[in-house]
Amino acid sequence: MDADSSMLSSSDQDPDLEIGLSLQAAERRERVFQTIKITIVWMILVAIVSFVLLQLNFDPGYIFLHNSFVLQGAATTLGVSLASISIATILALLGALGRLSHNSIAQGISGFYVSVVRGTPLLVQIYLIYLGLPQVGQQLSKLGMVGLGQLFTLSAIQSGILALSLNYGAYMTEIFRAGIQSIGYGQREAAASIGLTPWQTMRRIILPQAVRVIIPDIGNQFIAMQKDSALVSIMGIWEITYRANRLARKDSKFMEMFILAATLYWILTIISSWLENRLERKMAQAYER
């Protein structure tokens, strides 16, 4: 954009400038109109859904009265997701380095991890960690290793974060691997030629470039995780879905409460993707002309 405007201002004498500017303005008008039209379509869709629901004994007053109870769960949803995406990122980085390493032990461990986690349902993984691990802990305690045994008995929140981290770490391993592999071989050669070791090359040259490539994918994973975090409600964690479910069952207001929950997730993901876009643009600035 900067280059464009400076070009325009430097060519003040161009007799065709008027035509160019008016074409540009017309294009911009066109874009604004398009956005307005799409927004109207969205509003009509929301209106239709609302209208239909109101014909079917839907009680918006209930939502109005109880939204703060469910809204309080948003902090938990967000907290669990943020903690999990952070741990998953570290796991994914380690996993990708393992998969790309020439060491057969590292390759074996990371390949096994990715295969097992991607081949099993997240819900089963949650059960294994929350209900399965304490069994191991009890056995260890019986064998006299009480401290170690207690380590295996995780709270619901801990279990949820661990399960989401492990699960997303496996999927993100492949993202990191692809990102690292997308950096051209010439970069490694240039780094080697000035004496960088393979590890220094990874840390200083490859990863900073790879992270930029995969930021959109990490953002998408974070958005998906906010929604998948609804699964931890089965352990009684007081996040959005659990709270909505609780009221829905108490007062038989299922449609009301789950529409509220759905809307909250929707808003969270819209905010996240907006933030991710900004981050992406900020990171691109260093490279832009």
């Binding site: 051209g184 010439g186 970069q187 050669e189 240039a190 780094a191 080697a192 030629s193 000035i194 004496g195 040259i205 900073p208 470039q209 930029r212 260093a286 490279y287």
Partner: peptide, 17 residues
């Protein structure tokens, strides 16, 4: 040995970041 040599590549291979 590498530290005794400086290399210039056809494709420059500057670090873009």
């Amino acid at each position: 040995v590498r530290l005794q040599t400086g290399m210039v590549f056809q494709e420059f291979n500057l670090f873009p970041h």
